[in-house]
Write a protein that binds this DNA or RNA. Structure first.
Length: 465
RNA sequence: GGCCCGUUCGUCUAGUGGUUAGGACUCCAGGUUUUCAUCCUGGCAACAGGAGUUCGAUUCUCCUACGGGCUACCA
């Protein structure tokens, strides 16, 4: 049987890094084994679930390239199914009604000091139950869970996990308003969707035995489980909003590309067994092995993400990068020829860590510098700079073959003839053209900018100082 | 408190009953570069602690410590 996996986010916020990693792991396992990847929206918490979050999560998943194979499943539309299942359990005696109020329970907890439900209504007579029913006393539904034995499962990542059934009380599967709880809906839906493998965060390990008990109550075969270790912030605390930008959307806004993000996320807690690190989605699909995923939580390292992103950029085709840039900045370089934009990308891509970074660094290719870096001016602008630049302008005016190569030859000759060091001449030039002292080869920049622009910028800086 | 899970350089990780404990990111130094970045070379840096098993444990077992998760009529 081909595996069927699902990613089941609850739409209480945007897709965050942890969710993206979970979705990715599900996707990779499914695709590697020729199976299906599905998405189920767990929107039963009416208070916190928002339509906009659903849209945003789906949007992020699609942007990442983690496309799902069948229609979305919404838990909010599956109430009838839950009710039927609840009814089944009630009539088979695998679950029972509990008429104890929250206050009553709280009282018992205080007295016994135990967090476990005592089984107060587990064995009440039909008479007692009917009496409460008649009084319309609100009730919850609890699973009649076994008192002895162990519930065990073999986690694809953690291996065998065993928990004594005495640790599991008759937990609630439906609230007093009749709505089913997470552990219950999860099982019903996974069964209904024919899910074969459940891959989710490590925080669900403790839920798993409870869910297995529910499967057993229905005499269903539980799926195979895999629990992914948590992603931590720098302070070793679970990654959350407190750590700043943790949403997929913000990485997208910062110009990180899906391949880079996915590549990094996959490498958190996993490696292909070789020293290869830079991989696209297809490679991840073929190499991913969930059983090799680390059990230990991993700290999210922005610096490594930056590096991976820059590696992807450096390897990426120029036109492809241009297309990606236009996706986030539709007007970028639109006034120039396509070939000009491609040249800019070509010389800037190895020095950028994201699309946004590239755009920001490439500003002077499209606009005259709006200001000159003060520090660089102080370091560079000497008394004779003006004279030198005037001579340079003169020279440049006479050049017909405006290529990086020719410019290099002529300027080098000029410096040689006058006994000028490279920096003495080129730094003021760079300052005039770029506004600061960093960037790719000046001759390349000059060629791309063109004679007119170069001369006009140099004239401008002379007037400025 | 109880239960479950985890612990190799700062971070992500490889690894074996006997290794100079390997790689990557970061950082530092040098080289390349007119500059910056890239790139290349080199360097710093780790088996949580204690018992036990063993000729020998980072590796196997137990304990402790530390960290995390769950313990809800949240998901």
């Amino acid at each position: 049987m081909k595996p069927r996996l699902r990613f089941a986010p609850s739409p209480t916020g945007q897709l965050h890094l942890g969710g993206a990693r979970t979705a990715l792991s599900n996707y990779l396992y499914a695709k590697k084994n020729g199976g299906q990847f599905l998405v189920r929206i767990e929107d039963t918490d009416l208070e916190r679930s928002k339509k906009e979050h659903i849209d945003q999560i789906c949007d992020s998943l699609q942007w990442l390239g983690l496309n799902w194979d069948e229609e979305l499943v919404y838990q909010s539309k599956r109430g009838e199914s839950y009710n039927n299942s609840l009814e089944d359990l009630l009539s088979s005696g695998k679950a029972y009604r509990c008429f104890a109020s929250k206050e009553e329970l709280e009282q018992i907890r205080k007295e016994t000091g135990s967090y476990h439900y005592s089984g107060l209504w587990r064995n009440k007579s039909d008479n007692d139950i009917n009496a409460e029913l008649e009084k319309k006393t609100p009730f919850t539904i609890r699973l009649r869970s076994p008192n002895n034995g162990h519930t065990v499962f073999n986690d694809m990542i953690y291996g065998n996990i065993s928990i004594s059934n005495s640790e599991i009380d008759d937990f609630i599967i439906a609230r007093s308003d009749g709505s089913p709880v997470y552990n219950f809906t999860n099982v019903i839906d996974d069964q209904n969707m024919n899910i074969t493998h459940v891959v989710r965060g490590e925080d669900h390990i403790s839920n798993t035995p409870k869910q297995i008990l529910i499967y057993k109550a229905f005499s269903w075969e539980p799926p195979i489980f895999a629990h992914l270790p948590m992603i931590l912030g720098e302070d070793k605390k679970r990654l959350s909003k407190r750590h700043g930008a943790t949403g997929v959307q913000s990485y997208r806004d910062e110009g990180f590309q899906p391949e880079s993000l996915l590549n990094y996320l996959a490498l958190l807690g996993w490696n292909p067994g070789t020293e290869e690190e830079i991989m696209g989605l297809d490679q991840l699909v073929s190499k991913f092995d969930i059983s090799k995923v680390q059990k230990k939580a991993a700290v999210f390292d922005q610096k490594k993400l930056n590096w991976i992103s820059s590696q992807h950029l450096a390897l990426q085709n120029d036109q492809d990068i241009l297309d990606r840039i236009r996706l986030i900045s539709t007007e970028w370089g639109i006034k120039e020829d396509n070939s000009f934009c491609l040249c800019v990308i070509n010389i800037m891509k190895t020095r950028s860590r994201s699309l946004v970074d590239l755009i920001e660094q490439a500003g002077y290719f499209f606009n005259d510098p709006s200001s000159f870096n003060e520090n660089d001016v102080q370091k560079t602008w000497k008394e004779d700079s003006q004279v030198i630049l005037e001579e340079v302008i003169q020279m440049l005016g006479n050049i017909d073959d405006w290529t990086a190569n020719e410019l290099g030859l002529i300027l080098k000759k000029y410096m040689e003839n006058n006994g000028y060091g490279f920096g003495k001449v080129m730094k003021p030039v760079r300052l005039g053209l770029c506004g600061n002292l960093q960037g790719p080869s000046l001759f390349d920049i000059m060629e791309l900018l063109g004679k007119e622009v170069v001369i006009s910028r140099l004239n401008y800086i002379i007037k400025e100082f």
